[in-house]
C-alpha cells in the first residue's frame, strides 16, 4: 500500500490480487450464495480503493482492511435482513419485470399463474389497486382518481396488499 500511495499502480494491482482471496474467504463464512459473496467482495475492494487515503502506512494493513470488510459486510447483511423483513424477499417490481421481459413463454405463464394465485387471496379492491399500480403502471394518484379514493387511502391499501402478498408467497414457498 505504501508503494501504491506513492503512485505505483502495479503494486496496487498486486495488493488487490493478494487480498481478494482473503476477502473471499472472510465473506464466504457469512454468505452462502457465491454470487452475493462475490458482489460483497467487489464492494469491499471498491471501499478499500475509495478509502485508500485514510490508511496510515505505519499501522498494520490487515486491521484497517478487515474493519472496512466487516463494515461493508454488515451493511450488506443489514440491507438483506431489511429486505427479508419488509417483503419476505418478494419484490413485485421484479415480478412484474419478469412477466413482461421473460423470453420463455412457459416460464412467463407459470409466473403469471403463480402471481394470479396469490393475488386471489386478496380482497377485490386490493387486487384492483395492485394490478393498476404494479402491472398496468398507474401512479398512486391516478389509481386514486380512477377508483374514486384518496391518494393516501390507495397507498395504505397497496402497502397492506404487498405485505399480505409477501406473507402468502412465503407460505406458498414453504
Amino acid at each position: 500500500m505504501r508503494l501504491a500511495q506513492q503512485g505505483d499502480s502495479k503494486a496496487y494491482a498486486r495488493l488487490f490480487q493478494k487480498i481478494t482471496p482473503i476477502l473471499r474467504a472472510f465473506v464466504g463464512k457469512k454468505l452462502n450464495n457465491p454470487q452475493d459473496a462475490e458482489d460483497v467482495v467487489q464492494e469491499i475492494l471498491i471501499s478499500i480503493h475509495s478509502a485508500s487515503h485514510t490508511y496510515d502506512t505505519d499501522r498494520p494493513f490487515k486491521a484497517w482492511m478487515f474493519t472496512i470488510a466487516r463494515y461493508r459486510l454488515t451493511d450488506h447483511l443489514r440491507a438483506l435482513y431489511a429486505k427479508i423483513e419488509k417483503g419476505r424477499d418478494v419484490n413485485f417490481e421484479d415480478e412484474a419485470y419478469q412477466l413482461s421481459s421473460s423470453e420463455n413463454v412457459t416460464e412467463a405463464y407459470e409466473n403469471r399463474e403463480y402471481l394470479g394465485k396469490i393475488m386471489s387471496s386478496l380482497p377485490r379492491k386490493q387486487q384492483k389497486i395492485v394490478t393498476m399500480m404494479k402491472i398496468e403502471g398507474y401512479s398512486a394518484k391516478e389509481t386514486a382518481q380512477k377508483l374514486n379514493m384518496s391518494e393516501s387511502a390507495v397507498k395504505v391499501s397497496a402497502h397492506r396488499a404487498y405485505k399480505a402478498l409477501a406473507l402468502k408467497a412465503v407460505e406458498e414457498d414453504e
Binding site: 500511495q5 499502480s9 494491482a13
Partner: peptide
C-alpha cells in the same frame, strides 16, 4: 482490480 489499479491509490 485492473480499473482501480489504473486509477491509482489516493494521496494519504
Amino acid at each position: 482490480i485492473q480499473k482501480m489499479a489504473s486509477e491509482g491509490a489516493q494521496k494519504p
